[in-house]
Amino acid sequence: MPGQNVDTLRRQGKLKIAAFKFTSCDGCQLQILNLEDDLLALAGATDIAFFLEARRQAPSPPYDIGFVEGSISTPEEEERIGQIRRECKTLITIGACATSGGIQALRNWADVDEFCRCVYPRPEHIETLATATPIAAHVFVDYELRGCPINPADLLELVSATLAGRRPNISTHSLCVECKRSGYPCVMVAQGKPCLGPVTQVGCGGALCPSMNRACYGCFGPMEQPNMASLGRWFTSRLGQDARDMKRMLRTFNGYIEPFKQASDRYEQEEQRSKEQ
């Protein structure tokens, strides 16, 4: 549910919106620019205050809504997010990095020092944390927009809903509901493709991958109350997936968010057990 404070922002003139970037690929901020047709209307209805990707000038805080992209992976970021939280009445994370840690959270299962030594000629200049963690692990988050990248329509819907004072029409149920509503054939049942749709939250804009005859790979992260164990049993017993496949499938963009994390850890243990045997 959106924070109560989103709601009370209305009527005090335009919403002052800011976007902040942490460790990420910029793809989610780019999605805002990809709105193209809606961008002028968005700029007309709101005051986009701090958006380095689109503007050079940075008006001062406080902001009504702060959109945060990216995960926390350096000591500097750890500090900055606290400051930003104080400057934003409502803080909304956008995208998988900010919401679950993102791809870079894969290092949470590995040795970061080793990565640094392999990648950088002068690793001593690299200042980084051992983990990449979601924003909510550091400060209170009012609302999360999922996806890698986010669906720009969701962002528009969130701003529209805030302006109208209504709850955003953003659902937390499975992708399958939207896939069936859109009339797409099921790639899992009809073609045996391991599809994460039944445990993944809807939002990509009408079941994007199944609409292209491909299996969902879970870029919107876990839905409300997913039954990971049951789907996993089916994937491994009927669709030819093994523990390693399962682990890799779950550890993509949202591997570090529960319950994908717990399930992937379980498959990792299983993988190790089977290696030992």
Binding site: S174, K180, P198, V199, Q225, P226, S230
Partner: peptide, 8 residues
Amino acid sequence: QRCLSCGN
């Protein structure tokens, strides 16, 4: 235990 609650 088996139901995914996916709504299909």
